[in-house]
């Protein structure tokens, strides 16, 4: 299937958000995950063809 990740179309065999981000090496502990316009906490949500996935890093400083 094809999803949009960080604004770019990507073909993937990953079935869940966790699977996809794990293969990307994304540390989800310090990130906000947005799937199809909603912030998600459950990484086991399945991806589907056309999903739009965005990851925003949370870094220190204030």
């Amino acid at each position: 299937m094809t999803i949009t990740y960080q604004g770019n179309n990507e073909d993937t065999e990953a079935t869940t958000v966790w699977d996809f981000l794990n293969k990307k090496g994304v540390d989800v502990r310090s990130a906000i995950i947005e799937l199809d316009g909603e912030i998600i906490a459950d990484m086991s949500i399945p991806l589907k063809n056309g999903s739009v996935l965005n990851v925003f890093r949370i870094v220190s400083g204030g």
């Binding site: 906000i32 947005e34 316009g37 925003f56 220190s60 400083g61």
Partner: peptide, 16 residues
């Protein structure tokens, strides 16, 4: 981001 979050910053410049 989502319905209720507004995130400000460049998301990369980390004091660490």
């Amino acid at each position: 981001i989502g319905r209720n979050l507004i995130l400000i910053g460049d998301t990369t410049s980390d004091i660490r």
